[in-house]
Design a protein around this nucleic acid. Sequence first.
RNA 1: GGCGGCGUGGCCGAGUGGUUAGGCAGGGGCCUGCAAAGCCCCGUACUCCGGUUCGAAUCCGGACGCCGCCUCCA
Length: 463
Amino acid sequence: MLRLFDSVHGEVRDLRLRDPGRISMYVCGPTVYDLPHIGHGRQTLVWDVARRWFTFRGYDVRFVSNITDIDDNIINRATRDNTTEAAVAREFEDEWWSAMTAIGAAMPDDIPHATQYVAQMVDLIASFLDSGVAYPTSDGIYFDVSRVPDYGLLAGQPLESLRAGARVEANDEKRSPLDFALWKNAKPDEPSWPAPFGAGRPGWHTECVVMSLGLLGDDFDLHCGGFDLKFPHHENERAQAVAAGRPFARHWAHHGWVMVGNEKMSKSLGNFTSLTDLLEKTDARAYRLLVLRSHYRSPIEVTPATIADAERALERLDSLARRFDLPSLAGDMLEEGSHYAWEGEALDLYDRVATKLDDDLDTPLAVAQLFEALGAANAAADRGDETEARTLATAVNLLFAAMGLALDAGADDVDPASADLVSRRDAARSVKDWAEADRLRDELVALGWVVEDSADGTLIRRP
RNA sequence: GGCGGCGUGGCCGAGUGGUUAGGCAGGGGCCUGCAAAGCCCCGUACUCCGGUUCGAAUCCGGACGCCGCCUCCA
């Protein structure tokens, strides 16, 4: 049984699926008006790991994540860059997927775009106007939150206390500061779509309801996003579903954010590091490992120090891959774990790891188990127990792959000059000419190689 | 003001009342021609003050500090 923290109930609970054996999940995607930052990378990694693990456990997962391609930020960016909204959205969506692919995220099964769903949004808004849940003002159509009795469910507090704390500036025409825009009336030089209640563009909160219900259907299983989306975004999505009489997400899951110093990283604070920049100087797998080593609901600190720490830990994994010549997996989604022959030590390890991951995706404990098994594999090999060593090493490789982390035995291309140095060094060592062997090793190191001796002679690799 | 979260050894980071988290860094040893990789051993930490308990990092109360949401935000 899979268990996951549910934001509505504030506790870890069993994942009660709409259809046993199948999981429908929706992850709120980005508004594409700038480069993705490290926090977006974490989001993608967290839910990529969840999806991969669920799949590995034999569930048929349908994973939907949207692109918001029309919004105030995109309009502002287009104005600033003297280009069109469509061009901005296209540029940064491309940047998004190339960065997400670079960190090893599998593509969603569906990628709905807000602009493709405007007609459905218009229908929904029209129905809200009909039923009186929505009302027009001079600048658009607003949703009346007081019409949803349990508004505040996700925020964890009642409407009244939310209203008391509202920081939104006064708007005479809104009935409550918590009421939110479903539709923004067309303005000159801004994209707009026709609607019976007046041309304009959709508000942010409406697209995800329409797209998630449209693609996954009523009562879908899991709605995911950052903690900061819990309120008001997800609250407002839910409110619309309630008002429309549609059963919405059965479970809500929210991940923690990336911190910079003691502040949340965000575009609006301007303190973000783009994922693209990070990947230029870092092995993407190190970032995945860093993310896996903390719980998805905890904040993480991404600094040069924590990245370097993860890189060195990753090196330990790759050393295992080299020692046992393990294949690099996880380029694609792995097939079900049940398809592999788990026996003895490997089966024990699988059970231990699965117990952790099934229980609210406890990746840090799972990773700890795998590092212990890594040590056991090396120890077994050192004492000559090749069977146990290989069994464990293979299981470690497989289970990291199940979380999307590919170990890399690192067969770097060796240029002829370096290859020559290697063979000369082996020759020198065979006649115990240590001075020459050391000199040749220094030459290789100067060329940027890491040099290791093995039973098969000199091995070189890139650091 | 309301709601939620956090404070763990040099660093990162788990932790279901009692027995080793794990990683990185550091020290010692084994292995090695010397290294590297690997293995073995070593840290007795939990913001503070009370309380419950035979026993608390873990439960309860309080204090202090920090963060987040209540506005766009992954």
